[in-house]
Every structure is written in structure tokens, then in C-alpha cells.
Design a protein around this nucleic acid. Sequence first.
DNA 1: CTACTAATGAGAACGGATCGCAAAAAGGAG
DNA 2: CTCCTTTTTGCGATCCGTTCTCATTAGTAG
Lengths: 134, 134
Amino acid sequence: MTEASMQRITRQRQVILETLRNVRTHPTADELYEIVRKKLPHISLGTVYRNLDTLERCGMALRLDRVGNQARFDGDTSQHCHIRCKQCGRVDDIFETHAEVHADAVVRETGYQVTGFSLEFEGKCPTCKEIQDN
Amino acid sequence: MTEASMQRITRQRQVILETLRNVRTHPTADELYEIVRKKLPHISLGTVYRNLDTLERCGMALRLDRVGNQARFDGDTSQHCHIRCKQCGRVDDIFETHAEVHADAVVRETGYQVTGFSLEFEGKCPTCKEIQDN
DNA sequence: CTACTAATGAGAACGGATCGCAAAAAGGAG
DNA sequence: CTCCTTTTTGCGATCCGTTCTCATTAGTAG
Ligand SMILES: [Zn+2]
Ligand SMILES: [Zn+2]
Ligand SMILES: [Zn+2]
Ligand SMILES: [Zn+2]
């Protein structure tokens, strides 16, 4: 399912995607809901969840699986990885991947049919680092 | 908090840790609960959760976050990574890491104080692969 | 043994995510 | 435009993994 093949382009779907693409924060569903509500005050949280799900299945958004206890979403579907602040939960992008990973060796070791991998960094974000230092 | 400094060594705690260490499946809390119940029929699920939490804080167990919608736990705290079957959720170990990751470059790019990273593979496990082929 | 405190069992509560359903909206045909 | 069909929405109920509460139990020091 692609953007073109999505059967209805509703105002809600449009605004949700637009908002997700214009934000760099990898928001949770309810964070996105709060932002979208400024444009569509009567939208429901369920609609946000449903559309995020649809967008993910269309390959137009990514679900960052349970970084913390809530799912986060990413409107940038290009290849990049993430770093998460252990203290405040903030998630930032890492576009230059300074890593070399050999999946073929994993296949030999495990017998799995490997379809991908995710490399995620964790640490303390600049803001939390500064707060700690004071 | 270390093993020695844990204030009480209860039978429940003992059995939970023992069971977790003797299992290779990276069980969820309720899977572990079912196994432990065979030895301690009156243990409660809450106790399993509480002790897994304690063990994690003592560095005696690992919580594998964001594998599916349930947390999974690992009694092997040595350095290794995991591969997860997208179809059935099974998690296996990968002890030989065929990957080279440069965290220092990430520090430069993001300004984070990087404390670690996790590399997780995903794919289809041997069992699910065979089922599909038939 | 007693006294003190941590841990347990049972169940209620919490919270993120999903579901069910009637109403609304989108799109197509004429 | 109207009429009809199908998708989507809003809203509330529900699910389910996890955490919390609290009276009771049990580990440990002395
Ligand atoms: Zn932070
Ligand atoms: Zn991103
Ligand atoms: Zn499998
Ligand atoms: Zn493991």
C-alpha cells in the first residue's frame, strides 16, 4: 500500500502525516495528538493511533518500537538510526552510521533468515547532561 | 546493589533467578511465572515482576526492552546481542558479534554522552522458515 | 526465643493501545 | 446535483501488561 493507493485521503490523515513530517522529536501518539488537536480540535486519540498504524503499513512512517514504555513514531523513513536519552526519553537521529555490521555471519550462527537489524544508541542528552553538571 | 547486598534471600527470589539462568528462551514475566509455579505453586505474578525488577537493578538480569509488546528477560548478563523472529517472537542469542560500532563518532554528531548501544537483529527463525516453506 | 523490617500474595488500579459500533465523510455513478 | 457504497471517524468500552496497595508472612540479627 502506497500513498497513492490509500483509499481515502481524509483531512485527519493529511494533518497527521504533515505534522509527523514537520517534527523532529519522534513523538508518541499522544504527543502527536496534542499537536494535531491545534488544527483539528475534535480529532480523537483513536484516530491518531489508527492512522499511524495505516501510515506505517504504507511505509510512510516508522514505529520506533517501545523506546521507553510508549511507542514513538518517525515521519522520516530514510535509513538512519537513533539515540535515546536514558533520563528524559528524548530521541534524536543519527544519520551517519559509524558501524559495520555483517548479517551473513549471523545467518550462519543462528540459522535465521535475517531481514534486518537495528542499532540504537543510548546515553544522556546535552540538556540532561547540563542539568546534572549544575 | 549486588547479590551479596540483597537484604533477604527468599525462596521465591532464589527460584526465580535459578529458573531464569537455566532457560535459554528469554522468557516474558508470565512465561517465567508459569515455570516457577511448578516449584512454588502459590507464588504470585506480582512477585515475579518485583524480583525481575530487583534482579535487574542488581545487575543480575537483563530486561530486553521493546521485543514485541511484552518485556523479555535474560539471566545471562554477559555481552551478547539478540535476534528476534518477526513471526513468532522467539529470541535467540548471538555471541559472536560481527559488527564494529564507533560510539565516539556518535558523540561528535549528537552531543550526547553515550553510555552504550544495542544491536538487535530480526528475521525469521528456523522453525517459522520451515513452516512457511511447506 | 523476640523484634524489626523486607518481601510476599491477592487483588485493585493504572496506562497505553485496540476494538465495536453508530454516525459522518469520501468518492463514484448517473 | 442526488443516491449509493465503502471507508473513516469519534467516542466509549475493553484489553492486557505492569505496577501499586496493604495486610500478612517470613528472613535475619541479636
Ligand atoms: Zn535527556
Ligand atoms: Zn528518526
Ligand atoms: Zn519464529
Ligand atoms: Zn540473551
